[in-house]
Simulated assay, not measured.
Amino acid sequence: MNIRKLLIILLSISFMVSAAQDIITKRDGNDIKSIVIEILPNAVKYRNHDNQKGPIYTLNKSEVFMIKYENGSKDIFASQTASDLIGSKSATIYFYRPKKFASGRTKIIVGTVEPDEVVVTLKNGSWYKMTYEHLGERNFVAGVFSLNTETYKLNIIGDKTYYIKCSVLTKGLLVMAELEFIDKTIALKEMEGLRKQKVP
Rank of each mutant, 00 (worst) to 15 (best):
P200H: 05
E70P: 05
S73I: 03
I3W: 04
A91Q: 02
F181E: 09
F101T: 14
G104C: 00
V113L: 06
L169T: 04
S83H: 06
T106C: 02
Y46N: 04
E117C: 08
G172T: 02
L40T: 11
P115H: 01
Q21H: 12
T185E: 03
I13S: 04
D28N: 15
S34H: 08
F77M: 09
H134W: 13
R4F: 14
R195W: 01
D75F: 08
N2Y: 04
I157T: 12
I86G: 11
M176Q: 15
K53F: 15
K99V: 05
L59V: 02
D75W: 03
S14W: 09
M66I: 05
G111L: 06
D116M: 04
S88M: 08
E137H: 06
E117Q: 13
A82I: 13
D31T: 09
K129T: 04
G54W: 06
H49G: 11
R47A: 05
M66P: 01
I108Y: 12
F181A: 01
D50I: 10
K107H: 13
D22P: 14
I156T: 09
K171V: 12
V144G: 12
G172P: 08
T149D: 10
R138A: 11
T58M: 08
T185Q: 11
L40H: 10
I37M: 10
E137Y: 05
F95S: 07
Y69I: 05
K100M: 10
L154D: 00
G158H: 07
S12Y: 08
Y163T: 04
L59S: 00
A177I: 00
E178M: 03
L10F: 14
R195H: 05
N60R: 15
N71V: 05
I109H: 08
V144S: 09
N30H: 05
E70Y: 11
N60K: 13
S146N: 11
L122R: 13
K53W: 14
H49S: 12
K184L: 02
L6Q: 11
K89L: 10
I24W: 13
S14C: 10
N155I: 11
M176V: 06
V199A: 03
G172N: 03
D183N: 15
I24G: 07
E192I: 05
K26G: 00
S12I: 04
I182W: 09
R97F: 08
L85R: 13
R4Q: 02
N155R: 14
P55A: 08
S62C: 08
D159A: 12
E114L: 12
I23E: 03
F15P: 06
L122W: 10
F95I: 02
D159M: 04
K5N: 13
C166S: 12
F77S: 01
